[in-house]
Design a protein around this nucleic acid. Structure first.
Lengths: 366, 366
DNA sequence: TTGTATGCGTTATCAC
DNA sequence: GTGATAACGCATACAA
C-alpha cells in the first residue's frame, strides 16, 4: 500500500492511521493481475474475463480504492471537476444557484470548484483562468454584467463548455439560462397599473447591469403601452432611498415603486421606516427577488421571484450534456443559446390597495 | 429506472477535450534552457542565473504559461485546492462562511472545492473522501452535528489538515472555529429575564444538533441561576409553532421564546401572523442568527448574531497556517483546539416591553 | 549554475 | 484476455 505514514515522531500520541490511499497497483497486486487489467476492469472499458473482473472489483472494494483524479486529469481524461464563477457566494440568488449546481455535479460524479469575484467584475476573467489551470471540465459563469470585449474573447477561446447564468453569453456563442427580465418587469408594472397606480417610478440600484437594463426596458414598455410616463431614479444607497421617498410625499397621487433588486428593496423599506411611511397606504412597491421573510414584513412584499434552483439545475444539466457530447467547446452546438425560465410574480400586500392580512401567494407567471 | 433531475446519461464519452496550452517545455524551449531550469526559475526554488531567469520569465509571460495543477498535484506537491464540506450552500450561515473561506483561499493562491451534503449528515464522510480523491491540500468541515464514531475515525485518519466550523472537532484532535453557543444563549436568556420575563420557553427545531444542545444548556443555566423553571418545546415545523403559540395565549403571564435558529424564528413569526399575535405585546422573542431584514419585520427581531465572515476567515487562515507548517495532519499541533469568536446580541423590538420605532442596534457581546 | 533522468498514478497502445 | 510499456506535465535527485 502506497506510502506508509511511518516515521511517526515520538511526540505524537494520537498516531494517525494511514489513510486509504490505495492505488491501482495495490488493487492489481491483491487481485493477482497486472496494472492494465485492473484499470480495464475498473473503468469498464476493454475486455476482462469474468473471474478476473470479480477479483479486481473485490480487491478494490476491500482496499476502498478510488482513482487518483490528478493522475486521471493529467493523463488527459476528465478532471472530474466543474468550475463556477459568481460575484459573491453569500448573495442569495447566486448561493442558491451554486447549491443547485453542486447537487447536479455530485450526481454526475463531479466536484464543484467555486471562484468568487467578490463583486469585482474585472476579476471574472482571472477567475476563469485559474479554474482552467486546474483543468475543470466545464464552467458555469454567473455574471450580471454585459460582456466586455475581453470577456467575450476569453469565452470564445475557452477549451471547455461554458454555460452562463443571469446574463446571456450569446455574443460569445455560449449558452445560458436566464429569466426574461424584461417580461417580468413589464408584468409587474402592469400589475401595478391594473391596481390603479399611474405614477410608477423605476428604482435602480445598479443600472448598468444587464439584468437591470432589461428590467428597465420591460418597465418602460409597460408604461408606454399604458400611456404613462416612465420615471427612473438611481438609488445607490439608503440615503438616496430616503431622498426619493421624501420627494414623493405630497400625498396627492398614489405612488408605486418598481425596485430592481433586493438590496434596493431594503433601502426602500428602511427609508420608509425612518420616515414613518407604510405600504401600501403611502406608496406601493414591487421588488425583484424573493426572500424567506418577504411575507412577514410589516407589509408583506410583492416580489418577482426567480426559480434559482431550477436555473442552477438547468445550467448544470446543460453543461454536463455538452461535456458528455464531447465537443471541444459548446459554441452554437444547439439551436437555441438562451434557455428562458419563468419568473413568477408573488403578489403580497405591498402592491395592492387593501392588503390582505396574510401572505397571499397568488403567483402568476410571466 | 427513474432518472433524477440533472442526471445526464452518458451516451458516448469518447472524446477528450484538447487542451493546447503552453507547458513548461514550451517555455524552456523558447527561453533556450532545459526543462529543469525553467521549472526552477518559475518556482523560485533552486539557483538560476539572472539572465536565464529573465529570459524564462519573459517567455512564460509571452506564452501566458501557467503550470498544470494536475501535474503538480500528481508529482506530490500541493494541488492548490482546499475543500469545504457544508450541509447546504444556500444556507445563510454557511454561504457566508464559504464566501469568506473562498476569499482567503484566493489570497493564498488556492481554489475552493465545495461539497454539500444537502442536509444529509450521513454523507459527510463521503463528501470528505471525494474531496480527498481530488487531493485537496486541506479541508474546512462545516458540520452542525456531533461527531459520529465513523466521522471521528475518518477525521483522525485524514492525511491533510482539517479545521471545523460551527461544531468542534476536538474529539478527533482537530481544531475548529466556533462561537460560544452556550454563553450566547445564556446571555440572551438573561436579557429576557432582565426585561421582566419569567416564563421563557426554549424553542428547538433540531434539538439533536451540537449547536442546539449547547444553546439549550446556556438557556437552562440562565433559568436556573434566576430561579426560574426551564421549559422546552420541540418545534419541527410551522404547525408545531402554531400549537405552541396557542398553548400560550392565556394572556396572564408574559411569555418569551428563545428560538434556536432562523428557521424556527420563521415558524414563530408565521404562526403569530396566523393567530394575529404581535410582539412584544403578546409574547417576546429572541432568535439565533441575524439576517438582513430582521430589523424591518413588523416587529424588529432581537437576535444573536454570529460573525460568519470572521468565522470563515479564521478557519481558513488557521487551515493555511497548518498547511504551510507542513505537518501531514494537524492533530494536537497547537495548544488550543477551539477558537471561540464572539457572538453579539442585537437588541431590537421583539424582546423589550416598549419597542423602539427604529431598529436599535445596541449590541452587546457575549 | 545547468542538464539528464526518473517517477508521481493512470490510461492507452501495443504485442503476446 | 492479458501484460509490459509509454506517455501526460511537472519537480527534483543526481551528474556534469
Amino acid at each position: 500500500m502506497a506510502r506508509e505514514v511511518g516515521m511517526v515522531s515520538a511526540s505524537d500520541r494520537n498516531v494517525s492511521i494511514p489513510f486509504d490511499v490505495a492505488k491501482l497497483e495495490d488493487v492489481a497486486r491483491k487481485a493477482g493481475v497486472s496494472n492494465a487489467t485492473a484499470s480495464r476492469a475498473l473503468s469498464g472499458a476493454g475486455k476482462v474475463s469474468d473471474t478476473a473482473r470479480r477479483r479486481i472489483l473485490e480487491a478494490a472494494k476491500q482496499l476502498s480504492y478510488t482513482p487518483n483524479r490528478s493522475a486521471q486529469a493529467l493523463k488527459g481524461g476528465r478532471s472530474g471537476m466543474i468550475g463556477m464563477v459568481v460575484p459573491n457566494l453569500s448573495d442569495l440568488f447566486f448561493a442558491s444557484c451554486v447549491n443547485a449546481v453542486e447537487a447536479v455535479a455530485m450526481r454526475n460524479s463531479s466536484l464543484l470548484v467555486v471562484a468568487a469575484t467578490h463583486d469585482r467584475a474585472d476579476r471574472t476573467v482571472d477567475a476563469m483562468k485559474r479554474l482552467l489551470d486546474h483543468r475543470v471540465d466545464g464552467l458555469v459563469l454567473g455574471c450580471s454584467e454585459y460582456l466586455t470585449p475581453l470577456l467575450t474573447r476569453t469565452l470564445r477561446a475557452l477549451p471547455v463548455p461554458v454555460v452562463g447564468i443571469d446574463a446571456p453569453l450569446t455574443k460569445a456563442g455560449r449558452p445560458s439560462v436566464l429569466i426574461d427580465n424584461s417580461a417580468a418587469a413589464q408584468r409587474a408594472t402592469e400589475h401595478l397599473i391594473a391596481n390603479g397606480y399611474q405614477r410608477i417610478i423605476s428604482v435602480q440600484v445598479e443600472p448598468t447591469l444587464y439584468t437591470m437594463k432589461e428590467r428597465q426596458l420591460g418597465y418602460e414598455r409597460a408604461m408606454r403601452d399604458a400611456g404613462l410616463t416612465p420615471e427612473t431614479r438611481h438609488v445607490p444607497d439608503a440615503t438616496a432611498a430616503q431622498a426619493l421617498l421624501r420627494d414623493h410625499q405630497d400625498g396627492r397621487t398614489r405612488r408605486a415603486f418598481l425596485v430592481g433588486n433586493e438590496l434596493g428593496a431594503r433601502y426602500m423599506i428602511g427609508a420608509a421606516k425612518q420616515l414613518s411611511l407604510s405600504m401600501p397606504k403611502d406608496f406601493a412597491m414591487v421588488s425583484f427577488d424573493d426572500f424567506e421573510l418577504a411575507g412577514f414584513l410589516e407589509t408583506p412584499l410583492t416580489v418577482i421571484s426567480q426559480p434559482t434552483t431550477l436555473i442552477g439545475e438547468a445550467a448544470a444539466t446543460k453543461l454536463f450534456r455538452h461535456m458528455l457530447h464531447g465537443t471541444a467547446a459548446n459554441s452554437d452546438s444547439e439551436g437555441e443559446l438562451e434557455t428562458i425560465l419563468e419568473a413568477s410574480l408573488v403578489i403580497r400586500g405591498s402592491s395592492i390597495c387593501r392588503p390582505s392580512p396574510h401572505d397571499s401567494r397568488r403567483s402568476t407567471h410571466t
